[in-house]
Computed example of a mutant assay.
Amino acid sequence: MIRVLVVDDERMVCAHLRALLSTAGDIDVVGEAYDGAEAVEQAVARRVDVVLLDVRMPVVDGLAAAERLARLPHPPKVVMLTTFDLEEYVHRALKAHAVGFLLKDADPEDIVSAVRVAAGGGAMLAPSVTRRLLTEFTRTDAAARHEARRAVQGLTARERDVLIGLKDGLSNAEIGARLFLEETTIKGYVSRVLTKLGCANRTQAALIAHDAALTTRSPVNDN
């Protein structure tokens, strides 16, 4: 079972998320919290796998809570709940190792799927959201572009193909379909790409790909 903590200062939102997630046979909502400090305490006490974390909260907001959660010895996966009205904070959340952003008005099926993907180590951004983040929030200065291009030089051609898939917001299965490779093979490539780039999650790797201006797949088919 995937152990989930829902965090929002509006108790009705927590109740809605609990009711929704409890309909999934493999998800167990083990707690609710109504501010960031309580979220960190419960995440530790209840040994949760995934935290659905609101951005705007009193006392300790979601961004500060995400930073505290990232410093835990065994940090849970964090998905920020947002309406995208706090654009200037997106990079701060990514640096705190949040695996993605979930719109509060997302379809119920997408919310359930998001928890499952996060628990499995995937990114929580739909392709359209990924493109929005990359367009609006990625650093565009020359130093950042140079750093990103230097970082991707250490990747093989196939790893660059996989990285482009991450930039496009694709799942492992979708990248595999694009490259005619098995999903398990893609999972291995993703792990190597994250390690080589020093990234904690797929979203951070996607941002590097954007800064490096990786837009076309490599014609070379290597390992």
Rank of each mutant, 00 (worst) to 15 (best):
A33Y: 04
D35W: 15
G36L: 13
G36T: 09
A37W: 08
A37Y: 09
E38P: 12
A39S: 13
V40S: 03
Q42T: 10
Q42A: 15
A43Q: 07
A43E: 09
V44K: 15
A45E: 13
R46C: 11
R47M: 07
V50T: 12
V50W: 11
L53F: 12
L53T: 10
D54K: 06
R56I: 14
R56C: 11
M57P: 09
M57Q: 12
M57L: 12
P58F: 14
V59P: 10
V60P: 06
V60L: 14
G62C: 12
G62A: 14
A65E: 11
R68K: 15
L69H: 01
R71P: 03
R71I: 03
R71A: 14
P76T: 01
P76C: 02
K77E: 15
V78C: 01
V79A: 04
V79C: 05
V79K: 01
L81C: 06
L81V: 04
T83N: 14
D85K: 09
D85Q: 15
D85E: 15
E88A: 10
Y89D: 02
V90Q: 06
V90K: 13
V90T: 11
V90Y: 05
H91K: 10
H91C: 07
R92T: 04
R92W: 02
L94Y: 00
K95G: 12
A96N: 02
A98Q: 00
G100P: 00
G100E: 00
F101Y: 05
F101T: 00
L102E: 02
L102T: 02
L102I: 05
L103V: 13
K104Y: 01
A106M: 08
A106C: 12
D107C: 06
P108I: 11
P108F: 10
E109W: 07
D110I: 14
I111D: 01
I111Y: 02
V112F: 03
S113G: 13
A114F: 05
A114V: 14
V115L: 12
R116L: 07
R116S: 08
R116T: 05
R116G: 07
A119M: 02
G120Q: 15
G120E: 14
G121E: 07
G121V: 10
G122D: 05
A123V: 08
A123E: 12
M124H: 08
M124S: 15
A126S: 12
A126P: 07
P127H: 03
S128V: 13
T130N: 11
R131M: 00
R131Q: 03
R131P: 00
L133F: 11
L134V: 00
L134P: 01
T135H: 04
T135E: 05
E136Q: 12
E136F: 10
E136R: 15
E136P: 03
F137P: 03
R139M: 03
